[in-house]
Design a protein around this nucleic acid. Structure first.
Lengths: 186, 186
DNA sequence: AGAGTATCGGAACGATAGTCCCAATAGTAG
DNA sequence: CTACTATTGGGACTATCGTTCCGATACTCT
């Protein structure tokens, strides 16, 4: 039995999270295709069998990792929306900065997030995780803004995925006019 | 020597395209992860070694297939833009219909196209193919519309990739107001 | 027709994958 | 302290992968 009454972490919890974090690093570096029991174990510095002990199958490990990844994703986009909505005219600048960051220093992470998207397209059990940030953020917007908000979210997704296939990541300055136009009310 | 002066197809060309088409079917069904020499050969009804004969490596086969896929992609989106621009107020309806089609009957194909996107993010040699339709379409728009056009393209990409993680594909009617808003000039 | 070359297709080789087995260890409840 | 269970970690088994080898076949040019 893994659970404890006092809520303290059980022994294996630490290594379990280490494995998940290592898996995310592998995905960022080599993509989902690079995830094997052995590569993850090597990245985490644990024996190969440790990954099979904590996760029944490799699929379970992938799903656990991507769900974890989706949680951070939701947090990040939450702040993006928050800045865009609350700071008035400076919203576009903040959003452009966050996009440039997602396509520059955090590029690997952004790729991992879209690998989750595509995996969720084929595996229904991943869809709730992939949709989490869409749902959460949709719920925090006024109902009469829903269409505008969906357009905004789609635009962000499109700019990110298109930015991933640029030879060099776009700067915040280059993104600025597009974000500006995207946020402009109609 | 494979090339002929008169331009007639050389012998192996037919089987080569059969293999590419089979590969695309495999990608549509099981994703890039499902592509192996054996699965492709089985799908094409040819012996396993045929795939290694016509393509030096499995990577070459993948790249050839995805570049082929990108060509059709460009054609399809070309028509989408064409309808949106030339038919005035009915443009949004046409675009919504095409989106619903891409997320319904052509769902597998759409997933394949975004797998190309993500693969291109990691492999620079695939980027020209992935960017082709963006570039072609960008060149056909008036320069003063460039920002609006980039927003439109990003919105389309976002709607498509978000539609892929819906439990049931959105209908043209559901997409209509969003496309309407996306196309509305500012 | 015959030589030469492109293509085909069966078999197999080495590498690597997922997963399982089992002995050793450590922390915990009684 | 002792029994028990969770966890660790090394090794191995089996399946499948990419790729190569090589003999058979078919097409083309002279």
């Amino acid at each position: 039995m893994r659970q404890r009454v006092d809520g303290r972490k059980v022994r294996g919890e630490k290594r379990r999270t280490e494995i998940i974090e290592a898996t995310l690093r592998v995905i960022e570096r080599d993509g989902v295709a690079g995830v094997t029991h052995r590569t993850v174990a090597k990245e985490a510095g644990v024996p190969t069998t440790s990954t099979t002990y904590h996760f029944a199958t490799l699929d379970d490990l992938l799903i656990a990792t991507l769900i974890d990844c989706a949680r951070d994703m939701a947090t990040e986009v939450y702040w993006m929306i928050d800045r865009a909505r609350s700071r008035g005219s400076r919203g576009a600048e903040e959003v452009a900065n966050l996009l440039a960051e997602a396509l520059g220093p955090r590029r690997g992470r952004t790729m991992a997030e879209y690998e989750l998207y595509l995996l969720a397209a084929r595996r229904p059990e991943l869809r709730p995780a992939a949709r989490r940030w869409l749902d959460v953020l949709t719920s925090m917007v006024r109902h009469d803004d829903e269409v505008a908000f969906r357009v905004f979210l789609a635009g962000i997704d499109g700019l990110l995925i298109q930015g991933l296939i640029d030879d060099e990541p776009p700067t915040a300055e280059e993104l600025r006019p597009v974000v500006d136009y995207l946020l402009k009310p109609r």
